[in-house]
Simulated assay, not measured.
Amino acid sequence: MLLLKKTSKWLVYQGKAKSNYFNVLLKRESVGSTYIGNGTALIHGKYDEESLPASLSIIRLGKKVKWDEEHDVSMLLNFIPTDEKKADFAVLFKRIGKSIDNTEFWEKIISSDAVTMAKLFNEEFNL
């Protein structure tokens, strides 16, 4: 998956992941698609890197990209949980899962600037 490769390189460049993160993402994606709905994939994997902080990255793509056989995506949510923060991420996963059918919210997210997007996420998910 070219998109996962580019995303992992960007996350490494940003200091949010180690150089093996592409393999981590591929391993998770081989279990099943991380597409969650409304043009969004929630990419993640088991990633036990003690030297990195837990992070959530929101990656808005410039256009829709083929994700799997059935779906296109225009946004990726990337979670890098640590053992210390995995309970927090589990709560966030559940909150996102409950809101994925809220098309109005996701359309606002896709069309917002970065500051507004962060504000909307904070309000919707109590970050």
Rank of each mutant, 00 (worst) to 15 (best):
M1Y: 07
L2M: 12
K5W: 12
K5N: 09
K9E: 14
L11N: 11
Y13R: 15
G15Y: 14
K16R: 08
K16G: 00
A17G: 05
N20K: 10
N20A: 13
V24R: 01
V24H: 00
K27R: 09
R28F: 14
G32K: 04
G32E: 08
T34R: 03
Y35L: 02
G39R: 06
T40D: 02
H44S: 10
G45I: 03
G45W: 05
K46M: 04
K46S: 05
D48N: 07
E50G: 13
E50C: 09
E50S: 11
L52D: 01
P53D: 15
L56F: 14
S57Y: 06
L61Y: 06
K64A: 11
K66Q: 12
K66Y: 06
K66F: 06
W67L: 03
D68S: 02
D68F: 02
E69S: 12
H71C: 13
D72P: 00
V73M: 03
S74A: 13
L77V: 12
N78L: 10
F79L: 08
I80T: 06
I80L: 07
P81D: 01
E84N: 05
K86Y: 09
K86C: 10
F89C: 02
A90L: 15
S99C: 11
D101W: 07
W106F: 15
E107T: 05
E107G: 10
I110V: 11
V115M: 06
V115A: 10
M117V: 03
A118T: 08
K119P: 01
K119I: 15
K119A: 14
N126C: 05
N126E: 10
